[in-house]
Design a protein around this nucleic acid. Structure first.
Length: 473
DNA sequence: TTTTGAGTTGTTCGA
DNA sequence: GTCGAACAACTCAAA
């Protein structure tokens, strides 16, 4: 037992970033296991070079997730210090103020984030403070998988095959024990002062109705998914009218749950083809980060540079109709309204909506990516741009240019009863299922309050095929 | 070095 | 109604 006169040992700082959880958190685990006081910090960094500011929906999520994290950490006797500013300065100040002799974090994989972390590591090490980092948010860190030819994987199937053959993901760590109490008392910002929540207008009601940010909410979502439809997942995942997907994406985005936890829980529950399919979606997340690591400007630059000369249409009216969910194509509008209301859109509908923007309207995929970045609760620096480039055909392993989704057929195929459309487009609630996905064919030709289609899809498709075909010359 | 098989998610057309 | 082919080559990754 330490006596009163013992000097307080220097604390360890745990820097939380995209890993807002206690369980399976290697950095936190390492800090607590030292047996000295622990200080946790989260830095809202909107100033370091290259950092992309969070979108509105993500800011809402972050606020609630940090609240949950602070509460959970209190149970471990660890204070969560909130600081705003450029990370290098903030972390340096905090290390000095606390007298910490060690700082730990879980690694990040975006270009600017890697540069920041590297600079901080150098500065702290030079100052005699130990730095240790861990793998926590990816099963396969981007540099650990390399094809026998070429610098990185550009085809998902090969990537995933190599990944699965390389190693089995480690077993998740439990929630650590309580840290020893200490007299570390560090001032913190007030979360409310960060202004992460929307005001005037507060558009977050639909988000609050849909989600429970935080580690407990993430675990609950995983359990619900695993108890339900995993074995049916391969078939049902494409149906936006059913609750057949895990909806774990925002929890994974903020690291409230780790892919290791998802991996092991899924396999413990089920080893069917549904589980396999679900895990391959985890694989797509890994693949996107693999791409971002090797292409840090993924959000701004076409992987296929031929697309640099493509004459995207500057169609403000079209873009506005799309963002507002008023294109006149029910499945597209339903998706865009689901996105606005809940901060999330079903994967199948994301593809349809993205294809419509890019191919039917010929609007730059970056405009769509930016809208999703602002409105999705799950957008991250890798998956959002990688997916948009995939639909555009400019990305790795991309969709061929002649693949143009037909919003009517897609609606009929994946929302056959119209349950999804009726839910999100109330103007169409009473429309017969026969014309629900092409309401311009309804008796009378129009549906009250619902817009006429802003393009003729057949003609738009041909226009897109011609334009994209010309790219290869 | 060269060869070979393969590549998330579609649509349309004609037989 | 159903089915296969065409759509466009090209690049990737492994043998």
């Amino acid at each position: 037992m330490p006596s009163r006169s013992d000097p307080v040992p220097p604390p360890t700082i745990v820097w939380f970033r995209d890993d807002l959880r206690l369980a399976d958190n290697p950095a936190l685990d390492a800090a607590v296991s030292r047996g000295t006081p622990v200080v946790a910090v989260y830095v809202l960094d909107e100033q370091s070079p290259g950092i992309r500011p969070l979108g509105g929906a993500a800011r809402w999520w972050l606020h609630h997730s940090l609240e949950a994290l602070a509460t959970a950490l209190r149970g471990l006797r660890i204070p969560l210090v909130l600081r705003r500013g450029p990370a290098e300065a903030v972390i340096g100040d905090l290390a000095a103020a606390t007298g910490a002799d060690r700082i730990v974090w879980n690694r990040r994989y975006g270009g600017p984030e890697i540069a920041i972390d590297k600079a901080i590591k150098t500065a702290l090490t030079d100052a005699g403070i130990a730095v240790e980092s861990f793998a926590a948010s990816l099963l396969y860190e981007p540099w650990t998988l390399k094809p026998s030819t070429g610098p990185y994987y550009k085809v998902f199937t090969a990537f995933w095959k190599a990944a699965r053959a390389s190693q089995h993901p480690r077993t998740p760590l439990p929630v650590p024990d309580r840290a020893p109490g200490g007299s570390v008392d560090v001032p913190s910002d007030l979360l409310d002062d960060w202004g992460l929540l929307p005001k005037a207008p507060d558009w977050s009601g639909g988000l609050a109705d849909t989600w429970t940010p935080g580690e407990a909410g993430a675990q609950e979502r995983l359990q619900t998914f695993l108890e339900g439809t995993v074995n049916d997942y391969a078939q049902s995942r494409d149906r936006p009218d059913r609750d057949a997907t895990s909806m774990l994406s925002p929890h994974l985005r903020f690291g409230e749950i780790s892919p290791y936890q998802v991996w092991h829980a899924t396999l413990a529950r089920d080893d069917s083809s549904g589980a396999d399919k679900f895990l391959s979606e985890i694989g797509w997340r890994e693949f996107s980060w693999h791409l971002l690591f090797h292409k840090p400007d993924l959000a701004t630059t076409n992987i296929d540079s031929r697309f640099d000369r493509f004459a995207w249409h500057r169609d403000q009216d079209g873009l506005r109709a799309w963002t507002n969910g008023r294109t006149g194509f029910p499945i597209v509008d339903a998706g865009m309204r689901q996105l606005w209301h809940t901060g999330w859109m079903h994967n199948r509908v994301r593809m349809i909506a993205a294809s419509f923007l890019i191919k039917d309207l010929m609007i730059d995929w970056r405009d769509g990516e930016a809208w999703f970045w602002d409105t999705l609760v799950d957008a991250d620096a890798a998956n959002n741009p990688a997916s948009w480039q995939w639909v555009a055909g400019s990305g790795a392993d991309a969709s061929p240019f002649f693949r143009v989704f037909n919003p009517v057929l897609q609606g009929q195929k994946f929302d056959p009863d119209g349950t999804y459309v009726r839910r999100w487009v109330p103007e169409l609630a009473d429309t017969s299922v026969k014309t629900l996905h092409e309401p311009w064919k309804a008796t009378g030709g129009t549906v009250e309050n619902y817009p006429a289609p802003i393009v003729d899809h057949a003609r738009a498709r041909q226009r897109a095929l011609d334009a994209f075909k010309a790219l290869k010359d």
